[in-house]
């Protein structure tokens, strides 16, 4: 089957294909899953090497579980999210207190102009600070939707609530964020 033909194949079906020896399916899953879970791990750990270790470990667990995957009972995205979240928590627990890193790490993209880079860092830091002020569930829902780019049904599964509840949490979270960031704009005196 040509590589492009896998584009519309659901994640769970790709995992079943891999369990039957289809290595192209594994490649498609790698390209599809890794950026998202890497973002998740990097956001929590703020360390590229540690985030890569966590993601590699999580993907290895996915490969190993492929033959035993019970179709229809879980989604690969939510399963991976939980595994990465647990691995990140373990890493954070093992860190010594002085290993703690700032929530907002240095950007690595040298291509962006200095002005854009500074503005993006400022926005990212402001958003991070505002998110911390939200109730935990609103913060999680907004982060999953708008930064990690999960769909609402996926977020519902991750958080163990209904899709309508997720929509409500995101709406309330964004409303609160707008208020918090508007105040910050006035404090700092910059546009957007």
């Amino acid at each position: 089957m040509p590589f492009d033909a896998y584009n519309d194949v659901p994640d769970e079906a790709l995992l079943a294909l891999f369990a039957n020896g289809d290595r192209v399916a594994a490649k498609v899953l790698t390209l599809r899953m890794t950026p998202r879970v890497f973002r998740q791990a990097y956001r929590v750990l703020s360390d590229r090497a540690e985030a890569e270790d966590v993601v590699q470990d999580a993907m290895l667990r996915l490969w190993k579980t492929a033959p035993d995957w019970r179709q229809g009972e879980a989604k690969v995205t939510t399963w991976l999210y939980q595994v990465v979240a647990n691995l990140c928590t373990d890493r954070l627990r093992r860190r010594k207190p002085n290993d703690a890193l700032d929530d907002v790490s240095e950007p690595e993209d040298g291509a962006a102009s200095v002005e854009t880079s500074i503005q993006n860092r400022s926005r990212s830091a402001a958003l991070g600070a505002a998110l911390k002020q939200l109730p935990e569930r609103q913060k999680t829902a907004v982060t999953l939707r708008h930064i990690d780019e999960y769909s609402n049904p996926e977020i519902a599964e991750i958080m163990g609530v209904g899709v309508e509840a997720v929509e409500s949490l995101i709406a309330r979270g964004k409303r609160a964020l707008k208020g918090l960031l508007a105040n910050r704009k006035e404090e700092l005196g910059y546009d957007d």
Partner: peptide
């Protein structure tokens, strides 16, 4: 703001992608 937060995270390296694929092959 969301876009800035997404851009603040680097892309996974090619080396990581290669290691993950190598793991998949080894498991298979």
């Amino acid at each position: 703001y969301f876009e800035a937060a997404r851009d603040a995270v680097p892309d996974p390296s090619d080396a990581l992608m290669a290691r993950i694929m190598a793991d998949a092959v080894a498991v298979a």
